[in-house]
Write a protein that binds this DNA or RNA. Structure first.
Length: 116
DNA sequence: CCTGTGACGTGCT
DNA sequence: AAGCACGCCACAG
């Protein structure tokens, strides 16, 4: 599989994450058909140029922002998430139990609610 | 071609 | 909550 194809799959997976929800790198990798390649997802997002991809909805398994590509990224990512209604803990963490995409619970209600 | 190293991670201790 | 070990991959030497 070519590298570009992986990126395309990854971007497609990221686009599936609804507004107001987040997903982990590992989860995106799985959705993209690339299980165990979470770090590749990070690289793909770092090389992202397409503004239509909601890269800010991707955080690590701890519910924290990684962003190493740019100094401004972490701050921008958090700002965007908060703008979508995602709450952060005082420690700068996101409650994955409540915001993680694919957590099962109100998945249907979420897509039904339709933000925007 | 093989080895070393860094990386937007993850799970276990 | 913090630290450690592991695993996958791309890139440089």
């Amino acid at each position: 599989m070519a590298e570009d194809d992986r990126c395309a799959r990854i971007y497609a997976a990221v686009r599936r994450v609804p507004k107001g929800r987040v997903a982990t790198y590992g989860q995106i990798a799985r959705l993209a058909g690339l299980p165990g390649r979470a770090r590749l997802v990070g690289k793909a997002l770092g090389a992202l140029k397409d503004a239509s991809v909601p890269w800010h909805r991707i955080v690590n398994a701890a519910g924290k922002i990684s962003g190493r590509s740019e100094a401004d990224s972490p701050r921008e990512q958090r700002r965007r998430l908060e703008r979508e209604g995602v709450r952060f803990t005082p420690a700068g963490r996101i409650d994955l139990e409540g915001y993680r995409f694919g957590a099962g619970a109100d998945e249907g209600a979420e897509s039904f609610r339709r933000f925007g």
